[in-house]
């Protein structure tokens, strides 16, 4: 597996250095410890939003730092959650006096490291609330697991909570909006070929020429089921139906449909999946009111995609539509 990298140990630092130069109007990147914050610093009186997690999911999260979304992002090593000594200064940098919401994807590592950092921030007299994103319906019996994983739905949480903070919500209000998104967003993903972690140098799992992994996460973990390779329409059904069923969508509801690329699948294929997912929703009498298609929550160069559906209401729709200006999401 060849990569455009120098020393794999520097992969995250090198990439962030380039990112900082390319988006100097939007972000500042702190090295040692590594975190990304808004170029203008914390916004006084606004609730600060901080997210983070392992690297390898770019543009998540650093690509979403900017107006109307995150105030800081904390990238760990590839697929490894960041440490408390990175998270704490990010929380401090995001604090404009109105408290900070941390948006954490539900993985043991992320949960434990953010937990520790939040304890330290609270000792530092910063008001901090936290939400856990757990949108992956592939994790079926969450009683017997570490709970559902956070995957592409995280983007919706960050965008909508960001807009809620932007319009002046207080910490409790912004947290409640984030929780409402989490309660109404579900995802499911598929891998056609595994990614390779830089320092490992070979694919994270082995997949035959005619096999696909259904129910994968975003860390090159094997999925829930391995099935025979199938057409885009069939694969899309395997993704969309569990999502729509789990959300218990009923006729007349409005949703955001987000087809996310895992990094190594051409955009053109994502639109094929989108087209089929949309028809499946319409057959259920559900209106696709908002759409997003692209590589936003990736797993290095994994080939595959995920389908995310967010049940909308008027408020969530307006917050989704609110202006955003970040490296990776802008309108």
């Amino acid at each position: 597996m060849k990569k455009l990298l120098n020393d794999p140990a520097d992969a995250v630092a090198d990439s962030l250095a380039g990112f900082a130069l390319a988006h100097a109007d939007l972000v500042r990147v702190n090295q040692m410890p590594v975190f990304v914050s808004r170029a203008g610093g914390a916004v006084t009186g606004k609730v600060g939003l901080v997210s983070g997690g392992g690297s390898g999911h770019e543009p998540l999260h650093a690509g979403f730092v900017g107006d109307g979304m995150l105030d800081a992002a904390v990238p760990g090593s590839v697929f490894t959650s960041p440490t408390p000594d990175q998270i704490l200064p990010a929380i401090q940098a995001a604090d404009g006096g109105a408290g900070v919401l941390t948006i954490v994807k539900n993985y043991t590592g992320d949960v434990l490291n953010f937990e520790t950092a939040v304890e330290l921030a609270v000792e530092d007299n910063i008001e901090v609330a936290s939400v856990l994103v757990n949108d992956d319906v592939a994790v079926e019996d969450s009683l017997y697991t570490a709970g559902r994983r956070g995957v592409a739905g995280t983007l919706a949480v960050e965008k909508i909570a960001g807009a809620a903070a932007d319009r002046g919500g207080d910490l409790a209000g912004v947290t409640a909006v984030a929780e409402r998104v989490i309660a109404n967003v579900r995802s499911m993903g598929v891998a056609l070929a595994a990614p390779s972690v830089p320092h490992v140098g070979r694919p994270s799992f082995d997949l035959g020429d005619d096999e696909i992994e259904v129910g994968i996460g975003i860390h090159g973990e094997p999925g829930r089921h391995r099935v025979a390779a199938a057409s885009a329409d069939e694969v899309t059904e395997m993704l969309l139906n569990p999502v729509a069923d789990d959300l218990a969508l009923v006729r007349g509801e409005r949703v955001l449909l987000f087809v996310n690329g895992m990094g190594g699948t051409p955009l053109s294929e994502l639109y094929v999946v989108y087209g089929r997912a949309r028809r499946l929703l319409e057959e259920r009498g559900v209106t696709v009111a908002r759409s997003l298609v692209g590589n936003y929550v990736t797993s290095l160069e994994m080939q595959g995609a995920s389908v995310t559906v967010l049940r909308l209401d008027d408020e969530l729709e307006a917050l989704w539509d609110a202006p955003v200006n970040t490296a990776a999401l802008r309108w």
Binding site: G54, G76, T80, S81, T83, L112
Partner: peptide
Amino acid sequence: LMSTVGGASGPL
């Protein structure tokens, strides 16, 4: 370890 490992095993 807390400040360099990350992941689940760092805090553990």
